[in-house]
Design a protein around this nucleic acid. Structure first.
Lengths: 225, 225
DNA sequence: CGGAGTGGCTGC
DNA sequence: GCAGCCACTCCG
């Protein structure tokens, strides 16, 4: 699972040959199908209203454990408020539903013997709401890693309450957000050419109480090798 | 000047941005164009027939003054024979001529306002036998350092007699080298994909008597900042 | 996928 | 603390 908002997709492509064979490249696809190849590119697209400093591009997750990469975890566990207008990390100002946390997020291509090439370029409107399963045979072999993935998935909703709120507000529903941020969100939404900024159909409280509700996807979380 | 053998190039690149802006990285290019980024990498490439313990990767020079870098100079002034079959420091088993000490060696990129990007990747066979001069304006400003460079250059031949001998032998000319070393040299030559191991056109004594002979390059030796 | 360019760990 | 080394990112 991932912290990506509705409509965004993450793809892993394993390099097949050359000096870097076996390495993986990570791409994102914005709701309008634009391919993002790097964190700077993503930042450029979103504008400086979004602080991606806690976003790990490769894994697609928010970094809660201070500065990235092993090193000292001591000291203050990262000041999330520093320089942020809000916790806007990758929470895009597009209309959200409770199903956001069950979105199709990561597709892994080029696994051995897998020739599946899921279409990632077309709009979210034509995508099935399922995690794409490329290889089931990894399940048993990687029980530990698979568990990690599932745990991550289960834990996410707990951290998402205030983000959900932002989504609501950005969508024009919530009342208690600074005007500046709303404008930034709207502007970003327009910039992204994404889903129109319209009203929110579900009530805010319903979503907060059931962040994980909705159809279960039954997908298998592939471990990152 | 430098102790690098024919066909090798040394490059200094000043980091232009980021936290480490201003730092310089040193790269070497083998005769076949392979880029070397560190001393261990160089050692790996050459194999253990070459003892690089006296070679200073950053400056490109042989260290004659005991152990590198200030520190304790007391005690034994470095045992050059320790573990060495010969003084093979960076003397590669490729065909050499007397002009070896007048080879193009160091290129400095990214100097302010210099947009020169000399091609260092292609084979030595297409390179002019000239020291590449990127900026003349440093001449006057760095008279002292420039002198150091020139002195270094002038002194090299005195120290290179036995090295020249190795080159000859490695090239299949000299007689008095242990079989083991010859094999190592040849193997290294093959490994490097460098100049074929062929006969030496000049006689050994001629070169020893005139180590600095041959065309003068007229180049300017850039100081290492 | 390559490779220049930079980040950042590690050893001294 | 800093230099060296190497991994990794990012973009062609």
């Amino acid at each position: 699972m991932s912290a990506l908002p509705h409509g965004w997709k993450r793809e892993e492509v394993v390099r097949q040959s050359g000096l870097s064979a076996g390495k993986t490249d990570v791409y994102y696809y914005s709701p309008d199908g634009k391919k993002i190849r790097s964190k700077p590119q993503l930042a450029r697209l979103l504008g400086d209203a979004f602080d991606l400093s806690a976003f790990d591009f490769r894994t697609g997750r928010i970094i809660y454990s201070a500065v990235r990469k092993s090193k000292r975890q001591k000291g203050s566990p990262f000041d999330f408020a520093r320089g942020m207008r809000l916790d806007t990390s990758l929470v895009l100002p597009i209309r959200q539903t409770a199903s956001i946390f069950k979105q199709p997020v990561t597709v892994i291509r080029n696994r051995p013997e897998s020739k599946t090439k899921t279409d990632l370029k077309h709009g979210v409107q034509e995508q099935p709401r399922q995690v794409v399963v490329l290889e089931k045979r990894l399940q048993g072999l990687r029980a530990c890693d698979s568990n990690e993935e599932e745990i991550e998935c289960m834990e996410l909703p707990r951290n998402m309450n205030e983000k959900s709120e932002l989504m609501m507000v950005a969508a024009g529903v919530g009342p208690e957000l600074a005007t500046e941020s709303v404008l930034q969100s709207i502007s970003a939404a327009l910039h992204l050419n994404a889903v129109p900024v319209t009203g929110q159909s579900s009530s805010r409280t319903a979503i907060q109480k059931n962040p994980g509700s909705g159809k279960e996807d039954g997908g298998i979380f592939l471990p990152v090798l």
